[in-house]
Design a protein around this nucleic acid. Structure first.
Lengths: 232, 232, 232, 232
DNA sequence: GATGAATGAGAATTCATTCAT
DNA sequence: GATGAATGAATTCTCATTCAT
């Protein structure tokens, strides 16, 4: 009661350092509380700054949230294109895209929840980096399909949009409860299953059976391809 | 405004009638504004009652929203089982379930948005009639799959959960922008496409076979050749 | 949902019976919840009438509470005067008044709480039967003191008001936590102690010691008096 | 009202000053209206801040009330211990404690009313500074009694709790109507009287003795005679 | 650049009481 | 006499954002 209230020591940190501190604190609070429940005051307290300082670096609460999600999303997906280049075969490449999406969700369910429930429904979503990255990711996925259609591996009479919806819709629906904190997901098995169904569903040449000679050879080749990537 | 000091003319209506009036007004306001933006005062004004009257029939704003959604959902899905009984064949039955879901969204996108964005994320969702009805709907859908597996029409090595996620995830992902009020959906064509891909994806006996062994082996070899090009 | 809402069977009961039902229900609810928290709707439900009916018999919630307390208070204190007549000796009579007060509190702490915390602080208290009965009770108590002063047993230089405050203040302070539902009270012992201190405090002739001859004789006589009450 | 659309002129005061302003305003409003009737909006208006500002410094209305009472209580009782040290003799010390209590009530009856009627009945009372201070005050009072018992000045067969209840119960009962704004109290005289009665009530050696054995025996006999009258 | 005090609009909810039926 | 639907005033507390210092 006597003299506990003394002026906070003011540290002048570099802009980058301040921004990083705030984003880290914001990430933690957003993940714990969700967007609505998160308080600017708590973020400020955890970042060891006052509320006003946050507004020097971020326009408003929503902007802060978007920036937090964007940075993470970027880190998460930055390398997928590089990795994809090392994979050969429609099935493998398709499976990789599904697997990557699942892994992303598995690693950061709370952030994905933020994206799905807070960021995506908002009106500014399309002007977001997250939107851009998703678009890129979707584009790559559909390129795999297009290539397979061009080569005759897949039927050509299927709208790409629906394929996109099958893939991403299924993954999101599947991880729904995991994202809410209930249960677990088996990333590898699920990726296999989804890839298999969609592959078969689109295949021009029916995938008769796993014991089928041609199939087995094709899979063997695909595995070979993965082991010896051409340029990587 | 002219006579603020006198008691509003009291009309005594039956419970049913009042409830119906309030729910109608609430539905309109919720669909126009969304849950958060909807004001109890506006609902009351439109239903021509005072705010307190709403609280005689509904516990709170959220309860009101849930009741509104539930009633509509019930009406919407009440007959699907009856209709399904008249349809034969796995493909047709599967397509019907997908089609029904699409039609529901097409007819009431704003209500679906309420369900997807407001009701489902909430903690009380699982104790909701909407949850029950969805569960029922999903059960019927998977029964079609199970029957086809039992009869040998579908492969047996696919987890039902993933099939469920493919179907409903795809439909929801596909209607995403329509629900936000952007664009249109072609219910029939989409139902066809989704049903077709999933059917083929699960079929035990390949649907068609327009590729011969030799062709496939050649393609595999070509890919192998590309992998280890002569000049490397 | 089908037909549970049917018109309540209307029983026409005598006025007395209705009032009794409502008061009983009200007493229960007031004691459980306190005045503020008690709901007219709950009282109505327990009495098996609708809210409106309560207002036919009682002016308002406060009036109902007062009536409930009054009836009980009346029952509780109705016989004290009769009992007092059977008791002889200043000490014994004083002790009886204290004991009676303590017993009242011990038997109905929740009702006393209502009186002390809700009824007494209100502005209408003095026009209440409870006030009248208390006044009566206080009057009898002070008559004992006055008589003892007149006979020379007590000093005459003590304001009666202070004696009143000592007696009732002490009892209420002593039972404070018991009334809040904490702990117990030993009515007999406490009555003895309080009576003894006040008696000695007021005694003209000092109460020297318990071994003092006169005191012992007086006490013996008092016990004799109690054993053979004149008219009871 | 003339300029509702522009931001109120902001005056930045130190935390201490603002808190002091708010507490002063709150004290005034609580004393005038009582806790229930007091409006945060009125307190804000009097302190010349907006309502939100109050919530920056106080958790809620109740917290504000408690803080207001605590500060005053602390000021009021802070010096009693010091003063007590200067007083010698059981009677004098006892009288001082009673007198101090009476003076406190006389000076701030409205605040006492707040304590007795709002603060003390609440569930958080025991975690309050007021509770602590009262406990301290009571302890000091009983130490006087204990010392007198130890020295043989007072009888040892009286439970301290009852002595505490006599003192504080009597004072509170005595000031009851003054606290409600009716009448006056004569602090000095009342303190004398209460101290005297309690002192005599507890004294081991009788204070005075102006009545002889013969008289007392005669009185006892008279009473016996009345009890069994010759004609019965 | 940092501070942190101050803003201020809101908006759901309660429940005693009334009175048309 | 009983019903019970309807009234409606009234008030706390939140917290993102601003801006004087």
């Amino acid at each position: 009661m006597s003299e506990t209230l003394q002026r906070r020591q003011i540290f002048r940190l570099s802009r980058e350092r301040r921004v990083a501190d705030i984003m880290e604190a914001a990430k933690a609070v957003f993940l714990e509380k969700g967007y609505q429940e998160a308080l600017i005051s708590e973020i400020a307290a955890r970042a060891d700054v006052v509320e006003g300082t946050i507004y020097r670096y971020f326009e408003n609460k929503r902007d802060l949230m978007i920036k937090v999600v964007e940075r993470w999303y970027d880190e998460m997906l930055s390398d997928f294109d590089q990795q994809l280049k090392g994979i050969r075969g429609t099935w493998n490449r398709l499976r990789f895209m599904i697997w990557k999406h699942l892994v992303t969700i598995e690693r950061e369910p709370a952030l994905c929840r933020l994206v799905f429930q807070e960021l995506r429904p908002g009106p500014e979503y399309t002007s977001t980096m997250v939107f851009e990255l998703n678009r890129e990711y979707t584009k790559r996925t559909l390129e795999i399909i297009e290539a397979a259609m061009a080569s005759g591996e897949f039927r050509k009479d299927v709208p790409l949009r629906v394929v996109r919806d099958l893939i991403f819709g299924c993954v999101e629906h599947h991880t729904w409860s995991y994202i809410r904190g209930i249960g677990t997901i088996d990333v590898d098995k699920t990726a296999d299953t989804i890839a298999e169904i969609i592959y078969r569903g689109l295949a021009a040449t029916p995938v008769r059976d796993d014991s089928d000679l041609a199939t087995r050879l094709e899979r063997a080749v695909e595995r070979l391809e993965k082991l010896n990537p051409p340029e990587a």
